[in-house]
């Protein structure tokens, strides 16, 4: 059974109808240990969708279940949110405390964990995102990437089943973006943490096990990154970025070069071109 299950989920903001709602009849599951990326342009419903996964928004109709708990079950909402942690876009607007370790402790304090246990778990979580040496620092002196890592530690400390990330790198510079993505990738590989990641950076979704493409509140494309990102026609129709190497390989193929259709990354392109060269 899937960890998170969505069936026929609709969501409308005030004044919207079912036809022009933010989410219109979406069903899918998130499996344990998987990395799911959700892409789509602004207004496609992807950010609304992710907020439905931990009960921040409740479906207008349909149901969201996390390990069998419905997000609409008011009495179990805290149990559900403990299982599903979430990182937001703006690194500044999710850190509560004036000291890094106090912030990481915030969720655990809310859960009523005993002090000694909090201290251990906070230390551990900060180590996992490699921010241990910053435990006593003030968040506003950190870089954007470091702030996001602190936010991730705050979620990890709560030991959730799933980590939700709503465009966590949209406000960061390239090195901050890499820093955050590498951290989550490592946690995913080493600790097997389940990740649901909303992004509009196509290259970030390449690391996913599965990609969903949202458009006008519906899932327009889905599949492995390769299936989605090599569907160049489909991506163009949705106004989404195509990996530059996939685009290049298509153009070269059209001109008669024998580049495999599966080429997506620079490494793959390099290899394909070198093979082609040695065949001359």
């Amino acid at each position: 059974m899937a960890l998170i299950d969505l069936s026929e989920v609709f969501f409308q903001y005030e004044g919207q109808t079912e036809e022009d709602g933010a989410v219109r009849g979406v069903s899918f599951g998130v499996n344990k240990g998987e990395w799911l990326s959700i892409i789509g342009h602004n207004g496609s419903g992807k950010s609304t969708l992710i907020k439905l996964l931990n009960g921040l928004y409740l479906p207008t109709s349909g149901e969201v279940k996390v390990e069998g708990i419905s997000s609409a079950a008011e009495d179990r909402i805290w149990e559900l949110r403990k299982k599903v942690g979430m990182i937001f876009q703006n690194p500044d607007n999710q850190l509560v405390a004036t000291v890094v370790e106090e912030d990481v402790a915030f969720g655990l304090e809310n859960l009523g964990v005993p002090p000694l246990e909090i201290q251990g778990r906070v230390k551990n979580a900060l180590e996992k995102v490699r921010m241990g040496e910053f435990a006593k620092h003030a968040p506003h002196h950190l870089s954007g990437g470091q702030k996001q890592r602190v936010a991730i530690a705050g979620i990890l400390a709560m030991e959730p089943e799933v980590l939700l990330m709503d465009e966590p790198t949209a406000m960061l510079d390239p090195s901050g973006r890499k820093e955050v993505l590498d951290t989550v990738l490592r946690l995913h590989e080493e600790q097997g943490i389940t990740v649901v990641h909303v992004t509009h950076f196509m290259e970030e979704a390449l690391a996913a096990d599965r990609v969903l493409c949202m458009d006008e509140g519906k899932i327009a494309l889905s599949g492995s990154p390769r299936e989605v990102f090599l569907n160049i026609g489909g991506l163009h129709a949705l106004g989404l970025e195509v990996p530059p190497m996939a685009e290049l390989s298509l153009r070269l193929r059209k001109k008669g070069l024998r580049i495999p259709e599966t080429v997506m990354s620079i490494e793959e392109m390099t290899e394909a071109l070198c093979q082609l060269k040695s065949a001359i």
């Binding site: 342009h41 602004n42 949209a170 406000m171 509009h200 196509m202 106004g239 989404l240 970025e241």
Partner: peptide, 8 residues
């Protein structure tokens, strides 16, 4: 272009 989606 900071923070905009590809179309923007």
């Amino acid at each position: 272009t900071a923070g905009l989606d590809p179309r923007g």
